[in-house]
Design a protein around this nucleic acid. Structure first.
Ligand code: MN
Ligand code: MN
Length: 568
DNA sequence: AGTGAACAAG
DNA sequence: TTCACACTATCAA
DNA sequence: GATAGTGTGTCTCTTGTTCACTCC
C-alpha cells in the first residue's frame, strides 16, 4: 500500500485551475487509502485521467462539477482552458465524453432555450397554431403529442437530428458514476461536493481539524460502497416517482456487519412504505414497514394494522415491540396504541406510567403584535422581556450550544472511524447508537466540570478559541456573548447537568424539542424559566412532550403559554 | 422592462 | 439535498 | 386527542449571469 499522503499545493488561490488540484487530490487520496476497494474500471479512469493533457483534465473537472451530464459546447467557455472543442478531443478518445449523444425530448427541452425550441419545431408549432406567449411546458405538451401519435416508444435522437440547423454541439459526460463513487469514498457521503474544497479554502466554512489516523476510512469494503450507491440510486428514483413495487425488488439485502448502512437501508424502506401508504396500497406499505424493522416504521405499521381492523395482530406486535423497545419516540407511540387496541379487544386497560401535565397558562396579546413582531414566539418574547428579566428566543440552540461548547473535545475526539477527511462538521458516528458509549469516559470527564465549577471557563474558553468552527451542536449566530454569560449566570450547573444527561441518552434525537423561549430572572428563585409558546391551534409535538416531561420530572422551571389574540 | 429562479463560480 | 417546527384537516370517542 | 399531510424557513456564503415569465 502506498504510504505517501497526498497533499494539496498551498497557494491555490492564485491558481486558475484550483479545482483540478482538488480533484486530483481526491483521486490520489482514494488511490492511496482505498486501493483495495477499487475495481478495474476505477483504476482505468484514475490512470487515464492522469494521462490526459491538463486542459482536458480541467475541462472534465469543470463538467463534473456542474449540474447534469449534458453540456452545450457554447456553455463550456473558460478562460483558463481556452478552446474547449480542442480540449474535448482527448476526452472523446478516452471515452469519457460522447459527442452529439442520443437524447430524449425532455432532455432536448432542457438544453434548448425557448426561442430555439420555437425555431426547432417551427413547422409543427405553426400547424398547431400555438400562441407566441406559450411557455416551455406548453410547447413540450404540444410536441409530445406529435411524438407519441405514431408509436408508443418515445424517440431518442441526436441534437443534430432533432434540429438540423443547429450551430451548437452537445456533449455528454460518461464518467459521472465513477466520479460519484470516488467522491463518496473520499467524503463518506454524497451530499458534500467538489465545491466544499473551495468553500473551506476561502474560509467561508471552517472546520475543526482532527488528527486523522492513517487507518481512518469511511468504508471498509467495496460491498459497502456498492450498497450506499444502490440505496442512493433507489431513493433518487423514489423521488422521481417510480413505482414502489419496482423499487422494492431492487432493494439490496441488509448489510450484516455495518449498522450505519443497515440504518440507511431501513430509512429507505420506511420512505417506500410511506409512499405506498400515500398511494393507498396498504398491503405494500405494511410489507415495507415490516422490512424496515423497529423504530418509526414499526409504529406506522401497527397504526396501519389498527386501521385495517387487525386488532389482535396489532396488539400482539405492540407487546412484542414493547419488550424490545427502540427509542423513546417508539415507546411514546406504543403507549398511545396499546390502550386503544386493548379497548377494541376488550382487554383490561394496560398500566401506563403516569403522565405529568406541564404547567400551562394563557396569554392574551393584541392581534397586531403577530404582524409587528413577525412570529408568535417573538411576540411573547417582546411582551415579557425587560432589562432585568431578559427573554431570548432560542429553541434548541442554547442548551445544545452550551453542551457542544462544554464537550468540544469529546465531540472531536479522534476515535477510529469518526474522522477521515478535513471537511467534517462532526464525527461520522454521531447518529450511531454507540456514539455515547464509545466516549463514555470522555463525556463523564467533561460533565464533571459542572461539579467543580470549572465548566464556566471551559465553555467561555471554547467560545473564544473555536468561534466559527462547525460543530453539530453549536450554532454560533445564536450564541451571542450576552446570552452566554446570562445563561451561565442564571442556569445552575445542576440543571445543565440534568439537561445534558438527556442529550446524552440520544444525542441525535434529543437535540430537538426544547422550548421556544428562555427568560432569565437574575436574583429570583428560580433564576430562569423555559417557555414553550403555542399559538391558537398549535399543540405540543411528540418530541416537545418528551422534553417537557423530563424537565418537569427534574423540577426545572418550564411552562407552556397558549397565546390568544385580542381583536380590538 | 422588471422580477425572480436557477445556476455557476470563487 | 434535509430538518425542525408550525399549521390544517379528518376521524373518533 | 390522535394521526396524516402540508407549509415554511433553513438550506454551508456571496455575487453575478442567464433566462423564463409577466406586465405594460
Ligand atoms: Mn418553536
Ligand atoms: Mn412553540
Amino acid at each position: 500500500m502506498p504510504a505517501v499522503a497526498p497533499t494539496l499545493p498551498d497557494d491555490l488561490r492564485e491558481d486558475p485551475r484550483y479545482y483540478l488540484r482538488h480533484f486530483q487530490f481526491v483521486l490520489d487520496w482514494v488511490a492511496a487509502h482505498h486501493d483495495s476497494l477499487l475495481a478495474e474500471s476505477e483504476w482505468k479512469f484514475i490512470v487515464g485521467f492522469g494521462e490526459l493533457p491538463e486542459v482536458s483534465q480541467a475541462l472534465l473537472v469543470r463538467m463534473v462539477s456542474r449540474k447534469g451530464e449534458l453540456f452545450r459546447l457554447s456553455r463550456l467557455d473558460y478562460a483558463e482552458i481556452g478552446d474547449s472543442d480542442r480540449a474535448l478531443v482527448p476526452l472523446v478518445e478516452a471515452g469519457m465524453v460522447i459527442r452529439d449523444p442520443l437524447i430524449g425530448l425532455d432532455e432536448l427541452f432542457a438544453q434548448l432555450r425557448v426561442p430555439e425550441l420555437r425555431q426547432c419545431f417551427a413547422e409543427r408549432l405553426a400547424a398547431h397554431g400555438i400562441a407566441k406567449s406559450a411557455t416551455r411546458q406548453r410547447l413540450l405538451d404540444v410536441i409530445q403529442e406529435y411524438e407519441e401519435a405514431g408509436d408508443a416508444e418515445p424517440q431518442r435522437r441526436r441534437l443534430s437530428h432533432w434540429w438540423t440547423e443547429t450551430t451548437d454541439q452537445l456533449v455528454q459526460l460518461t464518467v459521472m458514476p465513477v466520479c460519484d463513487r470516488l467522491r463518496l469514498m473520499f467524503f463518506g457521503n454524497l451530499h458534500q461536493t467538489w465545491s466544499d474544497f473551495v468553500l473551506a479554502e476561502l474560509g467561508l466554512v471552517r472546520y475543526q481539524q482532527v488528527d486523522l489516523g492513517e487507518l481512518s476510512h469511511a468504508f471498509q469494503c467495496r460491498g459497502d460502497v456498492d450498497l450506499y450507491l444502490a440505496l442512493h440510486d433507489l431513493r433518487g428514483r423514489l423521488d422521481e416517482g417510480e413505482s414502489i413495487e419496482a423499487l422494492l425488488t431492487e432493494i439490496p439485502p441488509p448489510a450484516q456487519d455495518n449498522p450505519w448502512l443497515a440504518e440507511r437501508r431501513a430509512r429507505l424502506l420506511y420512505r417506500l412504505g410511506q409512499q405506498a401508504q400515500r398511494d393507498g396500497d396498504i398491503p405494500l406499505a405494511l410489507h415495507c414497514y415490516g422490512l424496515a424493522g423497529p423504530g418509526e416504521a414499526r409504529i406506522r405499521r401497527l397504526r396501519l394494522l389498527e386501521r385495517q381492523g387487525e386488532y389482535a395482530e396489532a396488539h400482539r406486535l405492540a407487546l412484542e415491540a414493547q419488550a424490545s423497545p427502540c427509542g423513546e419516540a417508539e415507546q411514546q407511540g406504543l403507549e398511545r396504541l396499546l390502550p386503544r387496541l386493548a379497548r377494541k379487544l376488550e382487554l383490561p386497560r394496560p398500566e401506563l406510567p403516569p403522565t405529568r401535565q406541564p404547567r400551562a397558562r394563557v396569554l392574551e396579546l393584541p392581534a397586531d403584535h403577530l404582524v409587528i413582531c413577525g412570529s408568535v414566539e417573538l411576540a411573547v418574547r417582546d411582551a415579557i422581556s425587560h432589562s432585568d428579566r431578559p427573554a431570548w428566543y432560542v429553541e434548541n440552540g442554547l442548551i445544545t450550544g452550551l453542551f457542544g461548547l462544554l464537550c468540544w473535545e469529546v465531540v472531536f475526539a479522534p476515535l477510529p472511524g469518526a474522522f477521515f477527511h478535513p471537511f467534517q462538521h462532526g464525527p461520522a458516528d454521531l447518529r450511531r447508537d454507540d456514539f455515547v458509549a464509545r466516549r463514555r469516559r470522555l463525556f463523564d470527564t467533561a460533565l464533571a466540570r459542572l461539579d467543580d465549577g470549572s465548566y464556566r471557563d471551559v465553555i467561555l474558553d471554547h467560545r473564544q478559541r473555536c468561534a466559527g468552527l462547525a460543530n453539530p451542536f453549536v450554532h454560533w449566530e445564536l450564541l451571542e456573548p450576552e446570552l452566554l454569560s446570562l445563561a451561565l449566570d442564571c442556569i445552575p450547573a445542576m440543571d445543565l447537568r440534568c439537561m445534558f444527561q438527556r442529550l446524552l441518552l440520544d444525542p441525535a434525537v434529543n437535540r430537538s424539542g426544547l422550548p421556544d423561549l428562555v427568560q432569565f430572572l437574575p436574583g429570583e428563585r428560580p433564576s430562569y424559566r423555559l417557555i414553550e409558546v403555542k399559538a391558537p391551534g398549535d399543540r405540543l409535538q411528540d418530541n416537545q412532550r418528551r422534553w417537557l416531561d423530563w424537565l418537569g420530572r427534574h423540577h426545572i422551571s418550564v411552562e407552556v403559554w397558549h397565546v390568544e389574540w385580542r381583536h380590538d
